[in-house]
């Protein structure tokens, strides 16, 4: 992998973490509370702040990827054909919505319930943003990226990073159903990622010279990272099960959940970083051109 692609690793993961937090927060935490008409705990506002912080980190690192950041404002000039131009627009729209949502929640904490529609819109903007991010890589000149595994991987990264982080926020005040749902997501996404790995490797081996090289890069050039990622997936699943069975019906007294939830999140984050490093390591032109 080229050293110049480290900023892209951090940018994509940070944006996907942010979107994952918003999506999971909206669907698995806010939605049940909204339906039950329980007051929103203040600590949930901090979730928005973490999502915003992740988005800001992502935006900063996106600039570090550029050779000439001074011209960055011009990058919206080609929305008609350039997926990169569309991505930058998407990042601006999503980040702006998130900033407004977060500010409104902190300025008017009592109005949190009535602002759910804004969180819905932000989450939808995030879903669209991840699709656009994945389309950047789906180009014929990069055969190893030009596959449905790319958007699938990006969406799964967002969901699992968001779910495992929010499980930590559910320790004292989350509902039993929310905790269980997030623990199930924390387990099931790494299981799906593990199950898809042989499918992906089989596709690489049968999809031409460049994709075959992608397999060589995975299994020879980055063998340690490849197996470390497998171990981290297994650890994430194990910690996820530990967390799942630590959830008690009296969730206000539920401190047993903290250690497994923290370990699961750490394992998932490390696995996603290695996964993304391996993704960029497979930046291969067709047939060596």
């Amino acid at each position: 992998m080229k050293s110049s692609e480290w900023p892209l690793v951090i940018f994509t993961l940070a944006m996907q973490l942010s979107v994952g937090i918003m999506l999971i927060y909206d669907l698995f935490i806010l939605f049940p509370l909204y339906r039950s008409r329980v007051a929103l705990p203040m600590k949930y506002h901090w979730i928005l702040l973490i999502a915003l912080l992740a988005a800001i980190i992502g935006v900063i690192f996106s600039f570090l990827h550029l050779g000439n950041p001074a011209n960055a404002p011009r990058s919206l000039s080609n929305i008609g054909t350039s997926w990169l131009s569309r991505e930058i627009s998407g990042v601006l729209i999503y980040s702006s919505l998130l900033l407004v949502t977060t500010i409104l929640h902190f300025v008017m904490p009592s109005a949190g319930r009535s602002l759910k529609w804004l969180i819905d819109i932000t989450a939808v903007a995030g879903i669209i943003l991840i699709f656009i991010m994945s389309r950047i890589y789906m180009i014929p000149a990069r055969p190893t990226w030009n596959t449905f595994f790319t958007p699938l991987g990006f969406y799964m990264a967002a969901i699992v990073m968001g779910a495992s982080l929010l499980l930590l926020f559910q320790i004292n005040q989350g509902s039993w159903a929310s905790q269980k749902s997030l623990a199930v997501l924390t387990i099931s996404i790494p299981v799906i990622q593990l199950a898809l790995l042989p499918v992906y490797m089989s596709w690489l081996s049968q999809s031409g010279i460049a994709s075959g090289q992608g397999l060589t890069i995975l299994l020879q050039n980055h063998m340690i990272a490849f197996y470390l990622r497998l171990i981290l997936y297994l650890l994430a699943i194990a910690f996820g099960f530990w967390a799942f069975f630590s959830i008690r019906s009296d969730t206000t007294q539920n401190r047993l959940l903290f250690t497994p939830a923290l370990l699961a999140w750490a394992a998932i984050l490390a696995a996603q970083i290695i996964d993304r490093l391996l993704f960029y390591a497979q930046n291969i032109s067709p047939d060596g051109f």
Partner: peptide, 16 residues
């Protein structure tokens, strides 16, 4: 004068 050095053209070109 207006290139930002994002290298996306490098990825997109099949001929390097």
């Amino acid at each position: 004068k207006i290139c930002i050095g994002c290298r996306y053209c490098e990825w997109a070109c099949p001929y390097g």
